Simulated scan of single mutants.
Amino acid sequence: MSTLEIRNVRKEFGSERVLKDVSISINSGDFLILVGPSGCGKSTLMNAIAGLEPVTSGHILIDGEDVTFNTPAERDIAMVFQSYALYPSMTVRQNISFGLEMRKVPKAEREASVERVADLLQITHLLERKPAQLSGGQRQRVAMGRALAREPKVYLFDEPLSNLDAKLRVDMRTEIKKLHQRLGTTIVYVTHDQVEAMTLADCIAVMRDGNILQLGSPDEVYNNPVDMFVAGFMGSPSMNFIRAMLEKEHDRYQLRIATPGETDLLLPWPENRVTADMAERLNQPVILGLRPEHFSEEDVRLTAQAEGTLLNANISVVEPTGADILLRLPLGEQEVTARVGPKCPVVAGTRLALRIDMEQAILFDAVSEQRIA
Score class of each variant (00 low, 15 high):
residue 213 L to Q: 15
residue 352 L to T: 04
residue 338 A to L: 00
residue 207 M to N: 04
residue 27 N to P: 00
residue 312 N to I: 02
residue 121 L to K: 07
residue 118 A to P: 04
residue 103 R to A: 14
residue 115 E to I: 04
residue 231 A to G: 13
residue 44 T to W: 02
residue 4 L to D: 06
residue 259 T to G: 02
residue 259 T to V: 02
residue 258 A to L: 07
residue 118 A to S: 12
residue 220 E to R: 14
residue 156 L to W: 02
residue 142 V to H: 10
residue 104 K to V: 01
residue 110 R to G: 08
residue 279 A to R: 14
residue 237 P to M: 10
residue 243 R to D: 14
residue 265 L to A: 05
residue 308 G to F: 07
residue 13 F to Y: 14
residue 280 E to T: 15
residue 277 D to K: 14
residue 67 V to G: 04
residue 50 A to H: 13
residue 242 I to M: 07
residue 55 V to F: 05
residue 2 S to K: 10
residue 40 C to V: 09
residue 133 Q to H: 06
residue 163 N to Y: 04
residue 214 Q to W: 06
residue 269 W to L: 14
residue 78 A to Q: 07
residue 153 K to A: 13
residue 290 L to Y: 09
residue 88 P to C: 06
residue 36 G to R: 06
residue 181 Q to Y: 01
residue 118 A to F: 05
residue 142 V to I: 06
residue 240 N to I: 08
residue 369 E to R: 15
residue 165 D to Q: 07
residue 360 Q to M: 10
residue 245 M to R: 15
residue 216 G to Q: 05
residue 306 A to Y: 11
residue 38 S to K: 13
residue 54 P to F: 07
residue 62 I to Y: 04
residue 211 N to A: 11
residue 192 H to R: 13
residue 282 L to C: 06
residue 178 K to N: 14
residue 129 R to E: 01
residue 84 Y to V: 13
residue 28 S to H: 01
residue 100 L to Y: 05
residue 342 P to E: 04
residue 282 L to G: 11
residue 80 V to I: 09
residue 124 T to A: 09
residue 214 Q to C: 07
